[in-house]
Amino acid sequence: MCGEGRAVCLGSDVDTDRIIAGRYLRTKDRALWAAHVFEDLDPTLASRLKGTVLMAGKNMGCGSSREQAVIALKEAGVVAVIAPSFARIFFRNAINIGLPVIECQVACKEGARVRFNLAEGWVEVDGARCHGTPLSPKMLAIVRAGGLVPYWREHR
C-alpha cells in the first residue's frame, strides 16, 4: 500500500490537545475538527495540510484517547503520519480510521516529496529511502480496508 505527499515537519511529543483542543470535541462535525486542527500549535497549519505527509518527532500523539485527533488530520487532507515513535492509542486510532502511520526514524525536510510503502515499512524523502517498522498483517489489513468499520463489515 503506497502513497505520497509533501512533507510537513513537526516536533517531538506533539500531544492530542494540540492536535485538536478539548473545546472543539463536543460535536460530530468532522469539518470543524479539520478547520481547528493544530490551532494551538500553529494556527496557519490547518489550511496547508491537504496532500501532506506529517513527519513528526518521537512520541507523536501523546495524551488523550480522543479519536477526533486522527480524524481531524485525515479530514484536513493528511495522507500519512511518520514518526520514530507514536503514543500507542494515537497509533491504534490512526489504523482504526484508515490513516496510514509508519514508525520510521527519518529526517524531515519541509516541503520535500515523500513516498511511502506501508506493507514494506519504508519512507522515501526526496528519493532517499529509509526503512521503518512494517505494520502487523492485521493492522495492514485494517488500513487497507479503510479502517476498522469497513474491515468489520467485510469480515464479520
Binding site: E67, I89, R92
Partner: peptide, 19 residues
Amino acid sequence: GVGATDMAAIWASGSTWFR
C-alpha cells in the same frame, strides 16, 4: 485505554486484540 472505534468493535464483539 483505546479510542472510540476500538470501543465500538468491543461493544460489537466483546473482545479486542493487544500486543
